[in-house]
Design a protein around this nucleic acid. Structure first.
Length: 255
DNA sequence: GAGGTCAATCAGTTGG
DNA sequence: CCAACTGATTGACCTC
């Protein structure tokens, strides 16, 4: 399988997001936390990048190799892969996103054009960034501070963004899991309800037969009396309940 | 109190 | 156009 990822990095904003003039409600703690990181990034933010096409026979396979905790993550920043070097997330709006897809050959300097008209633009992680985050998440659903920093640095993201990604990922994984669980519980409940209904009908049927005055050896030939009933909790099959409601299999054993 | 996670929510983007 | 997805924020709570 060949993954072809087109990176129109000239259209991406190389982490200029930190100057976002209208980034509202920024957590002051996060700001402090990320300040040092931003200073580091300022240096590497300058070089404009050209469009590059990355072909991955095995998508970033070298990254998957043993994502241990710190040491393995540390390998990320040492990766010579061009894709790692060009992990540049972008703030996109519908127009810029379209431009990225439709007009990929044209170089547009977006560095000073992150927000037009005061509209908030949303960061979209690149495929590569998402991929690495996903792989990392598969290994560990939480990050320690060191891992967070390493991952952030390797992906050209703020530590806070990595943190938020993991938070959201955990929340949404849990949500999906709950949906699956509730669906299966609903199915189970429906099955039990219909089973309960059937059993009630059978009991009524047996009562009717019994009240008709037929001898036991005759009415036991009716389906309702012969049916084997499976206990939903233990999964054991019980013989049809007679008028006493006693498990006939058990009673025959004991007698 | 610092630093972490989680739940709830908002809001921009995307795809049908 | 709308539902789904997803990045981001906020506040509550927990642990050390």
């Amino acid at each position: 399988m060949v993954h072809e990822i087109s990176c129109i990095t000239s259209l991406n904003l190389s982490l200029g997001c930190y100057n976002n003039p209208i980034k509202h409600r920024l957590d002051p703690q996060d700001h402090d936390r990320d300040r040092d990181w931003e200073r580091d990034q300022d240096k590497s933010r300058q070089q404009p990048e050209k469009k590059s096409v990355i072909k991955l026979d095995q998508p970033l396979s070298s990254l998957i190799l043993g994502f241990g905790r710190d040491q393995d993550l540390a390998k990320l920043i040492q990766q010579p892969l061009p894709s790692i070097g060009s992990f540049i997330s972008s703030y996109s709006n519908s127009t810029s996103a379209k431009r990225q897809m439709d007009d990929s050959s044209e170089e547009v300097d977006m560095a000073g054009d992150e927000f037009d008209g005061g509209a908030r633009k949303k960061l979209r992680l690149t495929k590569e960034q998402s991929f690495v985050l996903e792989e990392s998440f598969k290994q560990h659903t939480t990050l320690n501070p060191k891992e967070k920093l390493i991952l952030a640095k390797s992906l050209n993201l703020r530590p806070r963004q990595v943190e938020v990604w993991f938070q959201n990922r955990r929340a949404r994984t849990k949500l999906k899991q709950n949906e699956v669980e509730s669906a299966s519980l609903k199915k189970c409940c429906e099955a039990l309800t219909s089973d309960n209904l059937r059993l009630k009908r059978e009991i009524q049927q047996l009562k009717d037969i019994k009240s008709s005055g037929l001898p036991a050896h005759l009415y036991m030939q009716f389906p309702a009396a012969r049916n084997r009933i499976m206990c939903p909790s233990c999964g054991r099959n019980n013989s049809g309940v007679g008028d006493s409601g006693v498990d006939t299999k058990k009673s025959s054993k004991t007698s």
